[in-house]
């Protein structure tokens, strides 16, 4: 979820993340994850800010902005584009696939007119696939933000989306 602009004090956010995880090279992934969690994505300004606050040759900590982009582009959960108000994650893995996941996925895409990774023009929904979240015994599985739906059928999609209207 994108926080309202008044809460987007990025220098403070980065400072808090560094305090929590430590001013060290190996804390970069936790720090970026923290920013990602707070804002729903990592804006360009945050990369600059992390470098500014963390890069300290006198302490032996070397951080380049390109390294931060390299991390963000490698790890799926670090987003560099804003996401919708609600993020729908669909588990597209084999155990869900063989118990009817494809029909659920088709219904989701059709209902929202979205492809994987897209956000609706009104900024309400983002649709993405997720790596296996390990709830295979109740597949197909759909996550809306932090809410989990198991044993999902195509008929339930309208009802599930309706809860966030």
């Amino acid at each position: 979820m994108t926080a309202p602009s008044t809460e987007r004090d990025i220098p403070a956010l980065v400072r808090a993340a560094i305090e929590k995880h430590g001013a060290k090279r190996d804390a970069l992934i936790p720090i970026l994850s923290e920013v990602n969690l707070a804002l729903g994505y990592i804006p360009g300004e945050a990369f600059k800010e992390v470098r500014k606050q963390l890069h300290d040759p006198t302490e032996g900590v070397f951080v380049a902005e390109s390294q931060l982009h390299a991390l963000a582009s490698f790890y799926d959960m670090l987003a560099t584009k804003p996401r919708g108000e609600h993020v729908i994650k669909f588990c597209e893995n084999a155990p869900c696939h063989v118990v009817g996941g494809k029909a659920v996925w088709d219904t989701l895409r059709e209902k929202l007119s979205l492809k994987n990774g897209e956000t609706t023009p009104d900024g309400k929904w983002t649709l993405v696939t997720t790596s296996c979240i390990g709830l295979c015994s109740v597949g197909p599985v759909v996550l809306v933000d932090e809410d989990l739906y198991g044993n999902v059928t195509p008929e339930q999609i309208g009802d599930i989306l309706g809860r966030y209207e």
Partner: peptide, 10 residues
């Protein structure tokens, strides 16, 4: 534990 369908470690 990333293998789709494996959740014993979780």
């Amino acid at each position: 534990e990333g293998d789709p369908g494996a959740f014993m470690n979780r």
